[in-house]
């Protein structure tokens, strides 16, 4: 029988005080007047209320020339063309799949914007439509790229590259989209022996690094071979590290994840989720990132 650990309530320590106070941002809350000057353009997170520009969300004001936006701390995912997303199929319809991507409306993946087995330039026949559920069915996870954004904010996806497609064995972590840093690549093979896909929509997929690169992705056959204990441990540790980074609101990208993973090595995997351990390893990560910046 394992001993049970019980902790008593402790007052939250504000990390802000220990960090350098360098916030010169203009922070607003809903209903605050940003400017009474009518020469500005109204961006996201604002509205016009009798001759005034008023904030509608809580966050930092961003000005680009004459455009004023307010960026909320966390929102649902707002799609942009070229983003890489991880999503879950919720529905199979005629000629398209509906995919849940943490956006305000479900995204669509058209049958025509997908590589089917048997060559890239292949006519989609009626048989393909009938066999759609053989490729992807409800509950399947996919990685895809945003092809277009409709006027109502809904997103159209495509998987026209061998990088994208159905995801096999691994772990999904859902975080706020604002915590994922935009980068050149969102597919990373980490040195610790696992790979991650950092979806711009805040869905993060951690999976064992595939051995043969070329024919693995893009296919619809999932590799069901058992994953070794070592790989599973690495994946679990990465998951807990990402949760720790999210709890302490540190941006997620390959370097921060690797540093956090290395900082967590002295602890047992399950201990990484303890609040005090989280705080300690994320603080160490922060320090190393600051040193890296110079």
């Amino acid at each position: 029988m394992a001993a049970i650990e019980i902790r008593l309530p402790v007052a939250r320590k504000l990390v802000v005080q220990s960090l350098a106070q360098g916030s010169d941002k203009h922070l607003v809350a809903p209903g605050d007047t940003i400017t009474t000057d009518t020469g500005y353009m109204r961006g996201h997170g604002t509205y016009m209320g009798d001759e005034k520009l008023v904030a509608s969300v809580a966050g930092a004001v961003e000005r680009v020339n004459k455009l004023i936006c307010v960026k909320a701390l966390k929102t649902r995912y707002n799609g942009e063309v070229g983003d890489i997303v991880v999503g879950r199929v919720t529905e199979v319809q005629q000629k398209r799949w509906k995919v849940e991507t943490n956006a305000r409306l479900d995204s669509v993946l058209l049958l025509s914007s997908m590589n089917l087995p048997g060559g890239e330039l292949r006519r989609r026949s009626a048989e393909d439509e009938l066999a759609m559920r053989d490729y992807l069915q409800e509950g399947d996870l996919i990685s895809a790229e945003v092809q277009a954004v409709f006027s109502d904010g809904a997103v159209s996806l495509h998987t026209r590259s061998l990088k994208y497609g159905k995801l096999g064995q691994g772990v999904l972590v859902q975080v706020s989209p604002s915590l994922v840093k935009r980068q050149k690549t969102h597919f990373h093979d980490l040195p610790c022996g696992a790979s991650v896909i950092l979806g711009n929509n805040g869905f993060i997929w951690i999976y064992p690094t595939p051995e043969q690169k070329d024919e693995e992705a893009g296919g619809f056959v999932t590799n069901l071979e058992p994953v070794s204990l070592h790989d599973r441990e690495v994946i679990s540790r990465l998951r807990n590290c990402i949760l720790a980074l999210v709890a302490q609101k540190l941006m997620l990208y390959d370097t921060s994840i690797v540093y956090c993973y290395e900082a967590s090595l002295p602890h047992q995997i399950k201990d990484v989720l303890k609040p005090e351990v989280m705080q300690e390893i994320v603080l160490e990560t922060r320090q190393r990132l600051l040193e890296l910046e110079g």
């Binding site: 504000l14 802000v16 960090l19 922070l27 809580a58 966050g59 701390l73």
Partner: peptide, 10 residues
């Protein structure tokens, strides 16, 4: 809350 989170995000 906004101040705390923006400072953390840096």
């Amino acid at each position: 809350h906004v101040h705390e989170v923006t400072t953390l995000l840096g």
